[in-house]
Design a protein around this nucleic acid. Structure first.
Lengths: 173, 173
DNA sequence: ATTGAAACTTGATCGTT
DNA sequence: AACGATCAAGTTTCAAT
């Protein structure tokens, strides 16, 4: 898990790349449609996709979701500096990822610090999130910036849908 | 596109949330399976999902992809400071997002700067990417950090599969 | 807007090359 | 490993509420 490790063997070839590009380009993982786009027979497509799934390259089906459409239009990027200590990397990381609204947590080189990206609905939630960061025992300090606009990656995959409070939040408006 | 705008109307209710959570939790968007999980009849699930698609909340089908499995195990987070000028935000942003390996570009508040996240296969590509950033006309300076490990969001959706060179890169090894 | 059942489409399987 | 034909399985539609 440090840098890269173990069996780094993947047997991808150009045909796989064509299939993956078709999936990405058309926004579908249907063997039938991929056949239409690439000309590769759907049974072959099926075979390749199964292979890639077994290799662990492909995992779950997702749906691309436009967070801003449901009112989640505030993105906050924070640097979170933690004290250094045995296992802090994991402990602190887990605490950060558990915070509602947090969607990405990176542990970075150099000083012991994290880059955390959160998406929320309301300005008030920003203060609350930053407080959450700072309330974690080993945190030294944080430094945050707002995102004005997302040039790339405007939409978001549903892979960790956590906005339980969303309906209520919307109702409040 | 500044903060949020226009019709911010979404008619999501708790049933939609249940469906979305099921999709996220089980990694499937099959009406049949969602019916099994939630108990909501598949025809109703179908109806709701269609609705959400028409509202623009849901877009493409995607597949979760483990980049590290295909050798893309280096993540680079950079702050890119640009000169301020009319339309630079768009111009510079577009140039940044066009760079191979760049997967996220955020334009942030405060000084005119971008946060850019790139994923690549080889250390050498890091240098090349940073050079690319700095070669863009309006860039003042950049500041980058490596990601040691991704605490959250380890996998990646195929929504912009651009690793054309990947097969060749792997072959070189 | 919801649903059960029908109609239809498609993804998965299988056997051959 | 590739693929055409086949069939089970799934999605979508429809009519009634």
């Amino acid at each position: 898990m440090w840098l890269h490790s173990e069996t780094d063997e993947t047997d991808m070839d150009k045909k796989d790349i064509r299939i993956l590009k078709a999936i990405a380009g058309e926004g579908t993982n249907s063997p039938d449609k991929i056949q239409d786009i690439t000309g590769i027979p759907k049974s072959t497509v099926h075979y390749r996709l199964k292979q890639l799934r077994e290799e662990g390259v492909l995992k779950n089906d997702l749906m691309e979701m436009d967070l801003s459409e449901i009112g989640v239009d505030i993105t906050l990027i924070s640097e979170v500096y933690a004290e250094f200590g045995e296992g802090y990397h994991t402990t602190v990381g887990e605490k950060l990822e558990a915070i509602e609204g947090v969607n990405q947590v990176y542990f970075t080189m150099g000083d012991t610090d994290f880059v955390v990206i959160a998406n929320v609905t309301k300005r008030a939630m920003v203060e609350s999130i930053i407080e959450d960061y700072e309330s974690i025992a080993e945190i030294e300090r944080t430094s945050s910036k707002f995102v004005i606009s997302t040039v790339k990656d405007e939409t978001y995959p549903i892979n960790d849908f956590e906005y339980e409070t969303l309906v209520d939040t919307l109702a409040e408006k």
